[in-house]
Design a protein around this nucleic acid. Structure first.
Length: 463
DNA sequence: TCTGGGGTCCTAGGACCC
DNA sequence: TCTGGGGTCCTAGGACCC
């Protein structure tokens, strides 16, 4: 817990709507609503003029139209928002190298890391006003609210209280008194579900939370959430300001105008989404090992299916193939009616690690796996017993496989009976080795499975 | 015409390995 | 043949945030 109000939180006011009003003078002073305009869209941002009519973020767009029919309804220009955001963030970077953007319109700044030393009320007041002025200057007139406090939680609370177009310093030492009367919902990490459970325990305010019987929170919310809330209720928040947080997943999703029930009709979309994801993945310079397909049903329940490949990939086609298979595996759910489908990737590495085999389905007794296929997707699928002599992956045939192992029998019509060898799929010996086949007049590269010592044969058992 | 799209983090169970 | 604990990875779901 810091003893000085050394964390700054900046939040642009009604950001998307404000950029629209900045760029289109005719919209100034009028209600503006930015969000999804199609049937199932929701509001991203409402200008303060629109908020007066009850319009707010996350509200279904049709309701916003009902409440404020004369507003300007816009779908958003993210290029413009990104540009404005960049200008604002660069203002913050002049304060400190430790700037943590939470979104296009919001960031924390660690003033200690920036060498700031004057934490007097007057000093921080000057700082807040200078930052807001510079943000307006650099962004073409956007207004920002600034909060300063001894933690992220308190700094954000301060900027919220200052909104719109204001600033507030919460003096260290006054935090607990300030947050006591607030509803539990104002604690970070308390959303609708947790608030409901707390309500059930008769806990409505932060002060109620503090007075909760020991063990009560633990039973209702689990040790993790309970501990976090106990600390936050006392204004104890040690979360550091972290610059350059690495991206951990990339995803794309689409909500349909009308619920869909036909898997086949969804496949082209899933393939397209896979390509969008693939392009973003490559642009980020990453490879991904896990591919996920997400469905949301008519009843709003969410369902995901994911598969981790042996190696990391970034090709559209590979992502698409896996995604389509995962989708097909969910045909039963799709028939119930889906409102949303999404494709995502995660498990990033910075090098490609396409491996030879992908274990697909467990055998009935789970002692072996009955389908093995190359993780390079234009190659055929092999099952134990399949002859791979004539495949580019020869020579030999797949004998069996466990979860992380594949057993190959090195035997072809010309070589005669050969040894059986089990490889760990991570085994270097299983990684593709390009070779030119002697009789290959098409002059294409092929791959041979080799294993250290396989010529002696060995008694590696099937897994 | 109820309820977007992009993320992060946590939990819990099972497999698997040592 | 029975027995155990810890650590890690994978999958699925859910809560939350902006």
């Amino acid at each position: 817990m810091r003893t000085q109000a050394s964390i700054l939180h900046l939040d642009l006011d009604a950001f998307f709507a404000a950029v629209e009003q900045r760029d289109k003078p005719s919209l100034r002073g009028k209600p503006v609503v930015v969000g999804g305009l199609s049937g199932r869209g929701v509001v991203s941002t409402a200008s303060y003029e629109a908020r007066r009519f009850g319009v707010h973020s996350a509200m279904p767009m049709h309701e916003a139209r009902r409440l404020c029919p004369h507003a300007a309804f816009l779908s958003g220009r993210f290029g413009a928002y990104r540009l404005a955001s960049r200008a604002v963030m660069s203002v913050l970077h002049q304060l400190s190298p430790l700037v943590e953007p939470m979104s296009l319109d919001e960031a924390y700044v660690d003033l200690v890391a920036g060498g700031w030393t004057d934490f007097s009320l007057a000093g921080l007041a000057d700082l807040a006003q200078a930052v807001r002025a510079e943000v307006a200057e650099q962004s073409g007139g956007l207004t920002a609210s600034v909060g300063l406090g001894s933690s992220k939680f308190i700094a954000k609370l301060a900027s919220e209280e200052a909104k719109p177009d204001g600033w507030l310093v919460v003096e260290p030492g006054t935090e607990r008194d300030r947050i006591g009367p607030l509803p539990v919902r104002s604690l970070p990490g308390v959303g609708p579900a947790t608030a409901e459970r707390l309500q059930h325990l008769g806990l409505r305010t932060v002060a109620d939370l503090r007075a909760a019987r020991p063990g009560e929170l633990r039973r209702e919310l689990g040790p993790g959430v309970a501990t976090m809330l106990e600390h936050l209720a006392l204004a104890e928040d040690d979360r550091p300001v972290t610059a350059d947080r690495a991206v951990k997943s990339i995803s794309v999703e689409d909500t349909f105008l009308v619920d869909q029930t036909d898997v086949g009709a969804l496949e082209p979309l899933v393939r397209y989404d896979a390509a969008v994801v693939g392009r973003r993945l490559r642009r980020a310079g990453h490879f991904a090992r896990t591919i996920t397909v997400k469905l949301k049903l008519a009843d709003f329940s969410g369902h995901t299916r994911s598969r981790s490949l042996i190696g990391a990939v970034d090709a559209d086609e590979t992502i698409a193939q896996v995604a389509v298979e995962l989708l097909r595996g969910q045909a039963g759910l799709v028939r119930q009616g889906v409102r949303l489908v999404g494709v995502g990737v995660s498990g990033f590495t910075d090098v490609a690690q396409e491996a030879l085999f992908e274990v697909v389905a467990a055998g009935r007794d789970e002692s072996y796996v009955d389908t093995v296929r190359p993780a390079v997707w234009d190659q055929p699928t092999y099952r134990p017993g399949d002859d791979v002599t004539h495949a580019t992956w020869g020579p030999g045939w797949v004998w069996g496989s466990g979860r992380d192992k594949v057993t190959v029998r090195f035997e072809t019509a010309t070589t005669g009976p050969g040894p059986v060898r089990t490889f760990d799929l991570a085994d270097e010996a299983l990684q593709p080795t390009p070779v030119r086949l002697p009789d290959d007049d098409r002059d294409t590269d092929s791959t041979v499975i080799t294993g250290p010592g396989w010529a002696e044969g060995d008694e590696d058992s099937m897994v």
